[in-house]
Design a protein around this nucleic acid. Structure first.
Length: 261
DNA sequence: TTGCATGTTCCGGA
DNA sequence: GTCCGGAACATGCA
């Protein structure tokens, strides 16, 4: 589930439910997902403190609590839930922040991702690793600059969190489809006109995804059809092609996306 | 039963 | 140093 728009949705969710709420206890139901503290250590650091204004960088959710910051990554299947205190737990609830008026639950079917605690900026960077500018507020000049220094494939570049943060497999395919660009194209081959189209597609895809809190499934979105068998291009009706590109299963239209340069 | 899945990291080879 | 593919992680679903 979680790419930039999803995590942005989780950020809004925390802002809506948890800001100002006081943490009374933290229940670590699966300590494998608690990455850099013991359950006791996490509880000690957070108990009695209140949630502040949550931020997002790429696919990371940064939730200040008192002086510390809770870092969450959602892997492929993570999400957040807000429930009445003491209500029945979901089997995949892994870490529960019990607050004065409800519980924030980090839920994750698999065990990719997790929850970290950071005391300061240095510790935060250690956890997230180097991240490029967030794809939501990447300006055109910066985008051009980043691509200019890049050698490999364009899909790998879009998904490289160190280059720009927030785009994953679905969003990169969506952007390439919108820009009519073959996902196997090399960055170094892209002509200026194509780079501009790519940036426009990135901006539009991110902007339109954010209100949805997910990669949209509307009529003009590849994501809406990519998992159907025999899926066809929403633009021209050609049967979509699916193949590995940059180590992931890419989906593209062999007719619309012929541009390699 | 087998393969596949929206993510990240590590390794080996070119 | 750069780039790429593959494997690993754990779990549920078609």
């Amino acid at each position: 589930m979680p790419e930039l728009p999803d995590v942005e949705g989780f950020r809004r969710f925390v802002a809506e439910h948890a800001i100002g709420r006081r943490i009374e206890s933290v229940e670590t139901l699966d300590r494998r997902l608690l990455r850099n503290r013991s359950p006791q250590g996490l509880g000690r650091s957070l108990r009695g403190a209140r949630f502040g204004e949550p931020r997002r960088h790429g696919k990371w959710l940064l939730a200040p609590v008192g002086e510390a910051c809770v870092l969450m990554h959602f892997g492929m299947t993570g999400l957040l839930a807000w429930e009445v205190r003491g209500s029945e737990r979901h089997p995949h609830d892994r870490i529960v922040f019990v607050c004065d008026r409800g519980e924030l639950r980090y839920r994750n079917m698999r065990t990719f991702g997790g929850v970290w605690l950071a005391r300061d900026e240095a510790e935060r960077e250690l956890v997230t690793g180097p991240l490029g500018p967030d794809a939501q507020d990447l300006d055109r000049d910066r985008f051009e600059e980043l691509l200019a220094r890049r050698r490999g494939g364009i899909k790998a570049a879009l998904m490289d969190q160190r280059l720009m943060a927030g785009l994953g497999n679905l969003m990169s395919d969506e952007i390439l489809w919108r820009a009519r660009l073959d996902p196997r194209a090399r960055c170094a081959d892209l002509r200026p006109r194509r780079r501009r189209a790519l940036y426009d597609a990135l901006r539009a895809s991110v902007r339109e995804s954010i209100p949805a809190g997910r990669v949209p499934h509307g009529p003009r979105w590849l994501t809406a059809v990519r998992d159907e068998r025999g899926a066809t291009c929403p633009r021209c009706g050609t049967k979509l092609r699916k193949d590995n590109v940059a180590g992931r299963k890419a989906c593209w239209c062999p007719r619309c996306q012929r541009a390699r340069r």
